[in-house]
Design a protein around this nucleic acid. Sequence first.
DNA 1: GGTGTGTCTAGACGGTGCGTCTCGACAAGG
DNA 2: CCTTGTCGAGACGCACCGTCTAGACACACC
Lengths: 201, 201
Amino acid sequence: MSAAATTSQPRRPRSGNRRDEAARLAVLHAADDLLVEHGFGALTVEAIARRAGVAKQTIYRWWPSKVEILLDTLIEDSAKRIPVPADEPTAESVRGYLRGFARFLTRDPAGKVLLALLAEAQHDPDTARSLHERCLAPRRARERAMLTGATDAGEIAPTLGPDATMDALLGPIVYRALTGASIPRGLVDTLVDALLRPRAN
Amino acid sequence: MSAAATTSQPRRPRSGNRRDEAARLAVLHAADDLLVEHGFGALTVEAIARRAGVAKQTIYRWWPSKVEILLDTLIEDSAKRIPVPADEPTAESVRGYLRGFARFLTRDPAGKVLLALLAEAQHDPDTARSLHERCLAPRRARERAMLTGATDAGEIAPTLGPDATMDALLGPIVYRALTGASIPRGLVDTLVDALLRPRAN
DNA sequence: GGTGTGTCTAGACGGTGCGTCTCGACAAGG
DNA sequence: CCTTGTCGAGACGCACCGTCTAGACACACC
């Protein structure tokens, strides 16, 4: 979560040269840029090393795979660009969050990172585990808090539990992004209206 | 669509040996089995050739990539296992379709193929194009017909257009499958109730 | 029956990225 | 000073890529 955090807990060397922060940032940015410019297929460790002006071994010393590099950039970017609203437990803040999420996925380069990792998770179990533990689960915990807060405040009355409700809201957005479709404003509005304020029963 | 159809239109050789149907089926089944058993990461053309007992050249002669092999199996399997209801334009048939779709994605081995291709489409533009043209678009056309038929019959009254409605219904199912979550019956029911039978306005 | 024509298996080929390894240079701590 | 650890540079064997060649075989046509 902290800006200096990396994959594993920061090591505490007794002596020797410290980690080169410039190299770390160069790798992160190189991976990000290459993904956006040439796609995940062209994203190789050797290409990242070339682009970052860094030795391949330096990458392997700190990251077990290119996926973890992307995960580092994603965690930092998503925390900045689409924070989960925690202050105002209103239906409107949920709607705003979903709109921001939709724009993140379709417009923000960092959104491509999330889609790429979600995709790679289908191909590689390690990626799936890392993506959940380091990104999806923490975010989901905050989303749950957002929903239960708004429910307790009487702002919304979802039929489903918090997890299923969030998946019902996010699922269509993610699916449209995955299939390359745009996400019209009306879609988000309808989802919020239909799922968070159900007809009286 | 026909069982013998392959990637390109069936060639019309004037003479010479015809295509070996046994080899074609062996490749299809080998790809399917390898994907389910060892995941997409271990799915290589050479592995498929070994498993199918077929020369690599035979694969490259008929398929431009392993993705097209998977697409061939997916098109055949999905047509059999989750046909789009076309006869009875009722809300209940839509609900049944979604339930079948959910079970397909989570339980059926062929569902893994769809998830893998949806994932690969994020990494490779050619895969994205093929997946849309050969699988998603045709299915979507039938889904649209299903929705408009039910709407005309007065069975449902969706707020959104047919495309957005289908994405709103399928999105959560696909997203749960992508994240490895189960798809409870209540989720499908709530989606159908909330999106197809909106409160009067 | 001979001649083409196209598919099949088998395997070699150069190219590329993988992840590991070694090497020499360098910087900080003890 | 000397240990510890990182850095860049690059070689290594491995796996798979997609292409290519070679030879055997089956069918169509004449």
